[in-house]
Design a protein around this nucleic acid. Structure first.
Length: 478
RNA sequence: GGCCCCAUCGUCUAACGGUUAGGACACUACCCUUUCAAGGUAGCGAUACGGGUUCGAAUCCCGUUGGGGUCACCA
């Protein structure tokens, strides 16, 4: 824990509009870490002010994702906290007052134009390269107020200064200058009384005591609006830091069409949360000692915001798979791998007992898979006598018709069916017959597994067990 | 298109004015070996371009090019 910094309060503010996104996990990881390494708090706030895009199941799935990754928030709709409620829809009443406060202080105004009225104007304005002027801005405030009180539909818009510039401070960049004339008079409060992102976000961050706003780069251009809001309210700004955007292979912003972006997909494929986290941490950041494999705790120990790099990192499935395989092979114990694999299979509705046999098979297969979803495809012959025999294997079996019965007979009478003694048996047999091991073993492998791609033969046979092996060899001879 | 951000191997990145530009993934070869993996060793492979500044530039400055983001009563 770094004692030098004051407790940081961070947050993620996802919208419940679809699948739990890998980008949310990514930003969540950094926010969680920043908060926890300073002894602060990490808040999960649900930004559900858009009723149109709201998806009911989405919120729970976001919680599940965070829990799965081990990035449990300190405050959220789920666990509550002193700054609740943590759903913006439940904070509905708040925002109107803040918006009206800005109207009163002259930082915002009532606007009566509908989106349709503005659409055409916006199009030409965009082509001409400037921001649109909202006619209502020039209304006398008293008149506008009267119309609103008379029941006319209106939004509240931020009154962006016409001159000067707004400077955004970003921890990871030089100060960013925006000419005020380039900044739109953004809607703060919609006609339906709901706040837009800009208002809700700033008000809630303030009310919840957020000190560090760490979010994706796509938010940079709306940050001057937020800065203007903080100033209009007379509030100090939080520290802003915009993380690079995760990218598709073609460098565009990561998207569903070009990449699986739902964390649930990775769960269903049998990825480990540790591997996912480790991989995500390397997107824009490297361990100072060059360590590739490190835990969340280690990340928390050494991470510094200032070390984040800004090139848009391509989200590489390949590298993620490698991480996953590495965790399977080198980080988790055999027991743990078996336990997790068993849970994974149970969720896929594959019921196998977590017994000695299952654990032995798992041990054999761990270096041969990278994600759990490969497991069943590669181990059919361990679970059934009706395993497929591929072409190569069939050839090996055909070529071994003479040896197979003899080996079956020897294996049948082997007093102790362990890998060592089996190995010895093969060596003895090959020696007696003047054959190479490469001649003796393939037919056996083909016969018991139906494929040439399988674990070490003595291990394989020992695991399958004497009875099964002998039966399979005899069957292959017929 | 306007505005904004960014720029080292194919990919993730190290370097914080002085290195034969380092590591990891991927790829290739070899070793190990009963197959497939895993593991080990080696190889391939980059400072986008052009100007400055400096004794010296991947590193600082300017320009160009390229990539990305953003321009909603969505977040």
């Amino acid at each position: 824990m770094s004692a030098s910094s004051a407790p940081r309060v961070t947050r993620i503010a996802p919208s419940p509009t679809g699948d739990p996104h890998v980008g949310t996990a990514y930003i969540g990881l950094f926010n969680y870490t920043l908060a926890h390494q300073s002894g602060g708090k990490f808040i999960l706030r649900i930004e559900d002010t858009d009723r149109g895009r709201y998806v009911a199941s989405s919120e729970q799935r976001i919680f599940d994702m965070m829990a799965w990754l081990g990035l449990t928030p300190d405050e959220s709709p789920l666990q509550g906290g002193p700054n609740g409620p943590y759903r913006q829809s439940e904070r509905f009443g708040l925002y109107g007052d803040y918006a009206r406060q800005l109207v009163e202080s002259g930082h915002a105004y009532y606007a009566f134009e509908t989106p349709e009225e503005l659409a055409a104007r916006r199009e030409t304005a965009q082509q001409e390269g400037h921001v649109i002027a909202i006619p209502s801005r020039d209304l006398a405030p008293a008149d506008a107020k009267k119309r609103v009180e008379a029941g006319e539909a209106a939004v509240i818009r931020l009154k962006v200064p016409r001159d000067g510039e707004t400077v955004v401070n970003d921890r990871l960049r030089d100060p960013i200058h925006f000419a005020n004339k380039e900044i739109d008079d953004k809607v703060l409060l919609k006609a339906d009384g709901y706040p837009t992102y800009h208002l809700a976000n700033v008000v809630d961050d303030r009310l919840m005591g957020v000190t560090h706003v760490v979010r994706a780069e796509e938010w940079i251009t709306s940050t001057p609006i937020h800065a203007l809001l903080y100033r209009a309210f007379g509030w100090p700004e939080p520290v802003f830091a915009h993380m690079p955007l995760l990218r598709n292979a073609d460098k565009s912003k990561i998207s569903k069409r070009k990449n699986p972006t739902s964390v649930e997909w990775y769960q269903q494929q049998g990825y480990l949360p540790e591997a996912m986290l480790n991989f995500l941490a390397t997107m824009g950041w490297t361990h100072p000692e060059g360590q590739e494999i490190f835990s969340l705790a280690e990340f928390q120990r050494v991470f510094k915001l200032e070390d984040v790099t800004l090139g848009g990192p391509v989200f590489s499935q390949e590298k993620l798979r490698w991480y996953n395989g590495k965790y399977l092979r080198e980080v988790l114990s055999d027991e743990e791998v078996a336990r997790r694999l068993h849970d994974f299979l149970a969720q896929q509705k594959t019921d196998l007992p977590n017994d000695d046999y299952f654990r032995a098979v798992t041990r054999l297969m761990t270096p041969r898979i990278e994600v759990f979803s490969e497991f069943m495809d590669k181990t059919g012959y361990f679970w059934s006598e009706n395993y497929l025999v591929d072409e190569k294997a069939q050839k090996a079996i055909d070529a071994g018709q003479e040896l197979l019965p003899q080996l079956a007979a020897r294996l049948k009478t082997l007093p102790e069916f362990g890998a060592d003694s089996i190995k010895q048996l093969f060596h003895d047999y090959a020696g007696e017959k003047g054959l190479k091991l490469g001649k003796v073993m393939p037919p056996v492998r083909a016969a018991v597994a139906g494929t040439m791609e399988s674990p070490d033969l003595p291990d394989l046979l020992a695991t399958l067990g004497q009875e099964r092996v002998v039966a399979r060899l005899n069957k292959a001879v017929q």
